[in-house]
Design a protein around this nucleic acid. Sequence first.
RNA 1: GCGAGAGUGGCGGAAUUGGCAGACGCACUGGACUUAGGAUCCAGCGGGCAACCGUAGGGGUUCGACUCCCCUCUCUCGCACCA
Length: 824
Amino acid sequence: MEEKYIPRNVEEKWQKIWEENKTYKVTEDPSKPKYYLLEMFPYPSGRIHMGHVRNYSIGDVVGRFKRLRGFNVLHPMGWDAFGMPAENAAIQHKSHPAKWTYENIAYMRSQLKKMGLSYDWDRELATCDLDYYKWEQKVFLEMYEKGIAYKKTSYVNWCPKCETVLANEQVEDGACWRCDSEVTQKELEQWFFRITDYAEELLEYTEKLPGWPERVLTMQRNWIGKSYGCEIDFPVEGSLAKIKVFTTRQDTLYGATFMSLAPEHPMALELTTPDRRAEVEAFIDKVKKTDKIKRTAEDFEKEGVFTGSYCINPVTNRRMPVFLANFVLLDYGTGAVMAVPTHDQRDFEFAKKYDLPLQVVIQPEGETLDSAAMAAAYTEVGAMVNSGPFDGLRSDEAKEKIADYLAKEGIGTKTVNFRLRDWGISRQRYWGNPIPVIYCDICGVVPVPEKDLPVVLPMDVEFTGEGGSPLKKLDSFVNVPCPQCGQMARRETDTMDTFVQSSWYFLRYCCPDFAAGPIDKARAEYWMSVDQYIGGIEHAVLHLLYARFFTKALRDLGYVKVDEPFTNLLTQGMVIKDGAKMSKSKGNVVDPDALINRYGADTARLFSLFAAPPEKDLDWSDQGVDGSFRFLNRVWRLVCDLLPFIGKGGAVDPASLSDDARGLRRAVHKTIRKVTDDIDERFHFNTAIAAIMELVNAIYAFEPKNVPEYGPLLTEAIESVVIMLSPFVPHVAEELWEALGRKGGVEAAGWPSFDPSAAVDEEFLIVVQVNGKLRGKVTVATDATEEQVKAAAFADEKVKPWIEGKQLRKAIYVPGKLLNIVVG
RNA sequence: GCGAGAGUGGCGGAAUUGGCAGACGCACUGGACUUAGGAUCCAGCGGGCAACCGUAGGGGUUCGACUCCCCUCUCUCGCACCA
């Protein structure tokens, strides 16, 4: 063993051994408990960043720990490899996205290997591999057949910079999630996945995922946005037409005095009378030009226009003028709102602006509202008034009764409404999975027959950066005979959203070589669900919702048996430096390559695990990294110092140990217990590492270490330290393990077992309080009675002055811990 | 505005069930070894001379509160005209 710890030598040596021996390759083994551990796979942007280092270090601790505990651990890695940056880079460098992507993958793979992560590299996949995306096309066609995938024309989010459509989930604050450009609305025909069919189940299962962080579940629940209410028909005056509204406040129906439609509502122009036409058209135009973010901001001024038509309130028969209003959204509910200005703030402001009538139908307790004097809408519960047969009821109780009444009268129906929209997956980009359909003038939409799959993404395209997808201009791709009638037809040139690929990659990892279909059911059944998923919080409603939906859809297609993909989810915090997220503009970026070159991967891993618990943000400190490096050196030296005693003298004989020796052994076993709990139960790696540091300090401080008979004790102690360190710093641990004369690697030894008898305290330190304040400490035998403890406490020199001459009121004794003497 | 989470030394953070606040590490101070020290080892390290005071601030429950309850402040994240 070298006297000096040189990380590079140690790490290169062990990485080579792991690679040659395929140490972390796994196969399905029904005799062992399985553990599927997964970290979110990276986008191959060029190089890994500290967020990856942290994410994958956390995962690797769990993987290595579970292996030491005898689990058959599936721990795969791959690449989320389709996507726009590759295309942009290609345009910029006059290269090809495939070249750029695969070069990035090669470099990033080498970086991950330098970190010593325990992946089964034989399962590696990239979503841009034909062997991956071809199966996705098959799944798409099966979804099309089942009606889960469908095409429709609608207003969609359009990013002008990326020249493509975005799903609702991919628009953040009105801007593109990727390039931050302002998103506009465009009417286009697009492919969608019917995620709304699964809205109820996706919501219901948020209650059945106890291993997920509550805030992720809350975010998903908000996004799904279930609300209970009624759909109510309002007949149009002088016509057979009806306007359907959705409301959650059917209790205010008697107070509805006008009607508000979304400007894009299909009936908007039909209802407009000739004299109002010019004004209405101008208004619709204006609203369409306003971007959606501004329009949906709460403080945006409410504006509208009267259509000239009236509808009839079906319960009061009141004539209600029909307006178009800028705050009414076409894609929520029915795109039409019954306006109750007295009990809805938006309607109130609108009514004031356009001088529309107010009718109070709910009175707060102990107050009488006067519609003429109201300064704001009253939106709380109260007593129903001016509501025919429902007068006098509490408004919240009346909801159900009115809903029943409307149903009986055929005016309305009880409904449930979701905020969730279907997932638009068409992207007008090249570097993605081609949507496998053909458009024929005679036959319409024709799916590519299975025998013609896959639709290969052609490589011979030109990147000009202009005019959208280059696929459109590639005649050899676009022009194909119709599979049904043989006439010349056009191929779909849109590709699938990259979130489609990440919605099932965890299933393909179970069987990456499966040649007969997307998923080998038997192997997927062995491995699924993912026992522990680890990644950033930023995917709380994007990837994590899509993947849940996709898993359920695949279940319904017969591919998998599980309802949910991820049993436990850990969302790690960001890596921060100097108070800000690492970014080039801030100049606070730490480069993983430089870090590993200087300190080695083990130190990089150790610090990123030690500095904070995983779910919290991690404050990067260069000096802290020094500290972690020093600790590894300290362990290295300790092993060097102790080598003469290692393996000498057989097993530990507890009976022959001195008090000090028993103390050290107690520390060893208490540490084993703590580190095991911290890793297994809580994922608190920072406190686990702290406990090991304490134990190392204790071994250093163990004075009689020069006496040979302490060989067995010191062997047990140092071996425990090395094994417990191995999930965190695998290279140096293996090297030390070998230096200790142990063959076959740390893993063969298994996780150290905790011996309760060795960890038992021989005496207790009792904290003595007087009136709740700490006044002294006494040491007693573990079997001391309360009376004996009291006697010891009263006799203690430090305690005496506080109780002398005072009346003893009572004494509270917490066995083994504390005595509180109350005097007065 | 609504919802969730957080606020502890100079810094990152511990305190798992209401029981020694500040583990572990960083920074700092002193000492040892040394030609040298940015290596290593040893000691100290919340404030205050002390009584005491200290976990964002105020109140409460309790023998005892970082921990439980009420109010206030600050920060972070999510949602936000959703009918």
